[in-house]
Design a protein around this nucleic acid. Structure first.
Lengths: 132, 132
DNA sequence: TATACTGCTATCCTTTTGGATACGGAGTGA
DNA sequence: TCACTCCGTATCCAAAAGGATAGCAGTATA
């Protein structure tokens, strides 16, 4: 899993005083961010973690429908992005806890923006389908 | 392509005074929003459209690497979400123009949030890889 | 002794997404 | 007439994402 993406190429014309280069430079961080939150399970897992579900099997129950394979992979991704720390306690048997980091909270602005937009979009679509 | 998603199920515990139901209700709009901006080409196309590339072949040149098949499909999606209108002018041969709607600008807050977060994330990762 | 739970990994399979290539009719220019 | 552009569609394929199932070592429980 790559964390930084390559520069995509878009367009040739300036826009609002931005050169092509500036536009595509804007695109890269956007795609980095999207990479981090998109996919079927990333946000459900983060939400489950916020609700203090910390252990693997607990998470698997909380995020209904996810398989161990996928949960394991997603947790590794979240760890790599430093949203989660994996703590191993030498009990018998070992206890493993996944905890959200302070850094994971920086995502809040993104999540809120997505949420607000999504909410009005959903309402818009429902109204539209009513009309039809 | 579905526009509204099903309610996902996550977790069982309350969090910050929110019930389970409230949490998952938050998730739905987020996933609606993600649905609209994620994928390889959606944002590059929107950016190209903002730069006044309106015609099909123009878009295909502007968004380098996209094939006609995929561009065609993405434009249909964008139309369905009411980000784009397809206008047909009865010239000979017909001229077809894709134009962004005013509604497409409501995405700006989301795009900016993604951009800002992505930018600092990228810097964070670059610093981290320097240290190693 | 048998069964179950924990925290996974391995293997294989399906679905989704996107890419390659070819082709289409209609028009335009040499 | 030949070649080229425009705006796509159709068919087939490859890669990525995700799902199903099985298993495993260690411990606890019945």
């Amino acid at each position: 899993m790559e964390v930084l993406l390559e520069e995509p190429e878009v367009s040739t014309r300036p826009h609002r005083g931005l050169t092509k280069k500036e536009c595509t430079q804007h695109l890269m961080p956007i795609q980095d961010a999207l990479y981090v939150v998109s996919g079927k399970w990333k946000l459900p897992i983060i939400i489950a973690l916020r609700e203090r579900n910390t252990r693997f099997s607990e998470l698997q129950r909380a995020v209904t429908g996810i398989t161990a394979r996928v949960l394991s992979k997603e947790l590794k991704d979240l760890e790599q992005n430093e949203f989660v720390v994996r703590k191993v306690y030498p009990t018998t048997p070992v206890t493993i806890e996944y905890e959200l980091t302070a850094y994971s909270e920086t995502l809040d602005a993104v999540i809120i923006a997505l949420h607000d937009w999504g909410l009005q979009h959903r309402e818009r679509i429902l109204k539209r389908t009513e009309r039809e």
